[in-house]
Simulated assay, not measured.
Amino acid sequence: MPLHPLIRSPRRLFLLAASHPSAMLLAAQLLSLLLYPAMDATRDGRVVFGAVALVVVPLTVWVVRSSRSVNWVAWALAIPAIVLSLTAIALDRPGLVAGSAALESALYFYAAAALIRYMLDDHRVSVDELFAAAATFTLLAWGFAYAFLVCEALYPGSFTGMVEPERPRRWIELLFLSFATLSGTGNGDILPIGAQARALVMLEQFAGVGYIAAVVGRVIGLTLIREQRRRDR
């Protein structure tokens, strides 16, 4: 059976990926979302997967914004985070995970800011910018989830849940809380009970409403204007 042209030609596959870097990032994040439950049961599994996932973000930011400052800032956050993650595994130092999570949170927020700037640069909505709108949402969700992880490490008992309320919340639970908060759907399974945790959740609620109103609303509006102009021709 003949192979698909994209499979036969790595150069075509590379060009397709380069033309839609936001789609690459979104696909990587959604794939990790499916894999996290299987790895969340062990600390090492989540840390290793997190370190690998960190490589995707700065590379995607570099593709979207071919700016030296963006590239170096992203790597300046990513490299120490990866080193801390691997050191935590090699030396069995769980305390280093909090430091890695703090850098990961900053990296995801920085990448989200870079994608928002990319989407607001002009008044034309490309296919990649539509993917960027979705990818930015997931970047924000990941960024706040890592911030929750740091909060839980610094202030034990910041979050509770219906199941085993006394134990620290796992990564997938904090990520679930982040998605629920950012999307405005809310949930009753995982709750912030510490003052610092509640402050972070309120910031995420504000960020979610602002992102949907300002960025997503603009992208949808420009897309509708483009379609209307096509009909008028």
Rank of each mutant, 00 (worst) to 15 (best):
G221H: 10
D121R: 15
V70P: 01
G143Y: 09
A213R: 15
L174A: 10
A147K: 09
V52Q: 03
V150R: 12
R46P: 00
T42I: 07
V83H: 03
A53L: 12
F14G: 06
S178Y: 06
S126W: 12
S105K: 08
S158R: 12
L139I: 04
D189E: 11
L91M: 09
R11Q: 07
L177W: 11
A132S: 05
Q196C: 00
L30I: 09
D44T: 15
R12N: 03
D128H: 07
P168D: 02
R169E: 03
D128K: 07
A53M: 15
T136A: 12
R117F: 04
M202P: 00
G184K: 15
V215T: 07
L15W: 13
P21S: 07
A51I: 04
A132R: 14
G161A: 14
G194I: 10
G208T: 03
S85L: 07
L200A: 02
A111F: 04
A74Y: 01
I172A: 09
Y146P: 00
F137P: 00
A147V: 01
S126T: 15
L16I: 06
A207V: 10
A81C: 04
A113N: 07
I220G: 04
S19E: 06
R230S: 02
A180N: 08
R8V: 03
S126K: 11
L6I: 15
S32I: 08
A41D: 01
D121S: 08
V83P: 00
V47I: 15
E227L: 15
T60C: 11
V48G: 02
A145H: 11
V83F: 05
A114L: 11
E152H: 10
L174K: 14
S69K: 12
A114H: 07
L25K: 03
Q228L: 11
G186Y: 10
F109Y: 12
M24F: 10
F109G: 06
P165R: 14
R117S: 04
R43W: 10
L3R: 15
V56E: 04
P168Y: 08
R229Q: 05
P192R: 10
D92E: 08
I220E: 00
M24I: 12
Y155C: 07
F179W: 13
G143W: 11
L203I: 02
S85K: 05
A76I: 03
E164K: 15
V52I: 14
E152D: 05
L26V: 02
F179H: 09
H20I: 05
R230Q: 06
D189F: 13
V97C: 08
